[in-house]
């Protein structure tokens, strides 16, 4: 009796400890290891000659890193703004008690089921001038049609935005739809009595009531944007040249192909800190107080 009782007490700890150990070592351990490496002068292999903040200095002097950050700003802003607006718009349309709502929801949500690599390949083909959209339009007879963003260094980053937005919009839509369904229908009737035209009902009443959904959507999009890697690799491989380099692809090539392990580690640490500065306040506010309605 007392043995089984004691066993019952420590059983959760026994069951959880392997995964806890793996997570501690492989996630937090290697995070710490990476952060540590960023203060060394490691090249191809890890070495522990500490050089202070020098690798961070080199990182921010590297034009390629600056391009990566600029691209991140363009990509992140457009990705978040477009996906949020489009997702909200589709959610509002679907919320109009349309027929076959389930079908539409599934159709818009489906891209989320694909991996980023598949999305990247699909859009690479679609946007490839010789294969996709441009080719199709010319076949249809519009011979002067050109759409070559994928191969123009100044435009290529926007193709990544297109593919990324296409993939995440359905998910954003689902989140907003859940929020819209939570709005009391009597509020809409009250707004009709108060004489509010439909656009005012949305801008003044419904969208402000979706504040918690906006916060969730923003955090999810922001972290997806910062860690996006596979999409770029599949779609443009960072090219043409380095024109679609993102911090994540920069980190990969520094660490594994250019023998600059410490610089790669420094860039990874910068990304980690950026992500943490977005997610920690969110978690803090979510866990602190329950949303009031």
């Amino acid at each position: 009796m007392s043995l089984s009782k004691r066993l019952g007490k420590i059983m959760p700890a026994i069951v959880l400890s392997p995964s806890l150990a793996v997570v501690t070592l492989c996630v937090y351990g290697f995070m710490a290891y990476t952060a540590l490496l960023s203060f060394t002068d490691s090249k191809m292999f890890a070495r522990f000659d500490f050089v202070g903040w020098r690798q961070y200095g080199r990182l921010f002097e590297s034009p390629r890193w600056i391009i990566a950050i600029e691209n991140m700003a363009i990509f992140g802003t457009l990705y978040i703004v477009c996906a949020t607006c489009l997702g909200l718009f589709i959610a509002i349309l679907i919320d109009q008690r349309i027929r076959f709502e389930g079908v539409f929801r599934a159709v818009f949500l489906y891209p989320m089921a694909l991996s980023f690599v598949v999305t990247g390949v699909i859009w690479q083909w679609l946007l490839n001038p010789g294969l996709g959209l441009e080719h199709m339009m010319r076949e249809l007879g519009w011979t002067s049609f050109t759409f070559q963003w994928l191969i123009e260094p100044n435009r290529a980053i926007y193709t990544i935005v297109i593919a990324g937005v296409w993939q995440v919009t359905g998910f954003v839509m689902a989140l907003f739809l859940a929020g819209l369904r939570g709005v009391d229908t009597e509020i809409l009737r009250a707004a009709r009595i108060d004489g509010a035209p439909i656009h005012k009902v949305y801008t003044r009443i419904i969208i402000p009531a979706l504040r918690p959904a906006f916060l969730t959507v923003f955090v999810i999009e922001a972290h997806l944007a910062i860690k996006s890697y596979d999409l770029v690799v599949a779609l443009t491989k960072g090219g043409p040249g380095v024109s679609t380099e993102l911090p994540s692809t920069f980190m990969y090539s520094m660490t594994f192909t250019r023998n600059e392990l410490a610089v790669g580690a420094a860039s990874a640490t910068v990304m980690l800190v950026t992500l943490a500065s977005i997610i920690i306040p969110y978690l803090y506010s979510e866990l602190r107080h329950e949303p009031t309605t």
């Binding site: 009391d184 009597e186 509020i187 009737r189 009250a190 707004a191 009709r192 009595i193 108060d194 004489g195 003044r204 009443i205 402000p208 009531a209 504040r211 309605t293």
Partner: peptide, 21 residues
Amino acid sequence: LEPKERDIAMVFQSYALYPAM
């Protein structure tokens, strides 16, 4: 006539207050 044109006002069971205002 639309509700606003009927010169009426209504109090709802759930009160239906606008949460963000």
